[in-house]
Design a protein around this nucleic acid. Structure first.
Lengths: 321, 321
DNA sequence: AAGCACTATGCACAAACGTGCAGAGGGGAA
DNA sequence: TTCCCCTCTGCACGTTTGTGCATAGTGCTT
């Protein structure tokens, strides 16, 4: 029966993690086999019963973190990853550590805004469970494009967040970009859309990656059929370096006068800056330009990124300061 | 060099606990041997870099905890221990789990009152490190007796707490009991004593065991040469069931008119009840009478005890309710 | 009641891990 | 410099842990 299984998992976790018994000893006490105990412990970790966190001593922390932290005044977590790994492996490891790092930040009654993209998709696959009450996951920007509704891709991400935290999920069923700004204006007056916008306005946490225009291997947005040639040309002519939740900005963090933003469904940068906790996850040095812009725009309060990118970030800063 | 060793420990901990890499893989990235990684991880756990906690889901928790929690209105942690283990083994396991349970409760700027006794001694041996700033450990009651100053025994406990949390330690260099109440009055006016008393008055956390008069194997206080025959007779004639920090109480939690308390150096029960967080650690069913008295006196806000004792606690309650 | 579908269990093997020991390295002190 | 002392390292071995697979159990349907 599943009742005693949960209870056993709790007992096993206590004995293993708090009393340093071996699984063998625990198995004898629970009158079961050692392999069952091994599985009970996996389940306990998986279900969020066991919480493992690493406090990195701010003072003695690696110099890299300290430099970024001080310069941009944000909480930074550098993920140790060998520079020799390929993009996919790096992303996977950054995503796993990001997922476990944000776990402790999620609380009951939170309204959590989540963007979509390859980074968030990877993060969503590694979330550890944590039971919360009355939390809501709200989608930050639409995901439809010219060819597909984008529903499944973005909604898979949302669903994973929702089930990890036991939260309600609010999708945002609009395209990423409207063809005409006027349509956006019209839709923004629809009550179904307004419900989502109101939730976004009350977000306590926002989680997003960054897109970078000049990435070697371009972000979803720039390659996924969301923008036509004309749009891409317009971007190139307006000094845009990247985007967060399909809202574009320049290297200095400004976004005024970028016409594409008027058709984008993501939250205006000024609105995003209102959110108390804004967690930015970045993997891969090719995102460096987008990342610099996002930091210049003060879009993040927490930054999780791989070591190589972190190093690039401070190297550059070293040259200009 | 010790600098890069700490940094390596942090990296290793992140890779092991947050990215699920094997020690072998970590060793390759850090260009060292697997066994070194194993040791780095031990060090990381040991030094409090890695924090493992078990959240027990209040709702779905074992019935035993729920019953105690509701009846006494306190946070309870039942330590799973087979009833067949002997007292020493049980104490060791309760102490280890207690030490790891109180870790997360300790914060910077805390003033932590600590009693002494076999239970606290065991707990102090299992504390996990956690860096805090400006915390103070203050001794709750004197430890001297007729034969020795009791200094080393109690001060070892205090010292272990102090070094685990990086806190200043304030000893209380007085006997456990004065021979004459007048001496206590006199001493309580000494400035050296008053400094300690003032700290005690500002405690945010108190940690203590309980003594039980009728324990099969009597507490330190009743056997350690602290009390003479006359005292023990007086106790027997006043319905005392136990003590906390050498302050005695009856089964109903009352302590008025117990003359020995006038010569005791522990905090009055009323004063102890002022402390926001009062953590009581109990191991062994023979302490049941003392424990019941302490709970009746509402001395604890948090209770950590072994399973067998917990069961006895609710069984008895089942009979009287 | 029988059948079915699904999950939990124990076994056995392979992988991962902890630790005693011997040797290497790295400061002081003479 | 040379010696000594102490700490750190890697090896090798035994222990502990994870997991594929066959089986036993459990609950639901017909």
């Amino acid at each position: 029966m599943t009742l005693s299984r949960d209870a056993d998992a709790l007992r096993a976790a206590q004995m293993y993690y708090l009393q340093d018994l071996t699984m063998d000893a625990i198995a004898r006490e629970l009158r079961t086999s050692r392999s069952t105990v091994s599985r009970l412990l996996s389940a306990a970790r998986e279900s969020g019963l066991v919480q493992i966190q690493i406090r990195n001593p701010l003072d003695t922390g690696p110099e890299l973190e300290g430099m970024i932290r001080r310069r941009y005044n944000l909480d930074v977590h550098v993920v140790p990853v060998l520079g020799t790994l390929n993009e996919a492996e790096t992303l996977d490891r950054v995503a796993m550590q990001a997922a476990r790092t944000i776990g402790p930040l999620v609380d009951s009654n939170a309204i959590i805004g989540v963007a979509w993209g390859s980074t968030l998709s990877a993060v969503s696959r590694h979330l550890t469970r944590k039971i919360t009450h009355d939390s809501v996951i709200v989608q930050l920007n639409g995901a439809g494009n010219m060819h597909t509704t984008g529903i499944t891709y973005a909604s898979d991400i949302m669903r994973r967040f929702g089930s990890a935290y036991g939260a309600r999920v609010e999708q945002f069923p609009v395209p990423a970009f409207f063809d005409h700004a006027a349509t956006k204006t019209a839709m923004w007056n629809e009550r179904s859309v307004q419900r989502v916008l109101e939730l976004q306005a009350k977000m306590s946490i926002a989680i997003f990656g960054v897109g970078s225009v000049h990435a070697d291997y371009p972000s979803h947005v720039y390659a996924g059929g969301y923008l036509d040639e004309e749009d891409l040309n317009a971007l190139a002519n307006s000094d845009v370096v990247g985007d967060v939740a399909t809202v574009f900005f320049r290297a200095d963090g400004s976004s005024d006068g970028i016409v594409l933003n008027e058709r984008s469904t993501g939250p205006a940068l000024a609105q995003l800056r209102q959110v108390r906790r804004r967690i930015c996850v970045v993997s891969g040095v090719s995102k460096i330009n987008g990342l610099r812009g996002a930091l210049a725009a003060r879009l993040a309060t927490d930054l999780i990124l791989d070591e190589a990118t972190a190093r690039r970030l401070v190297d550059y800063e070293g040259l200009t300061s």
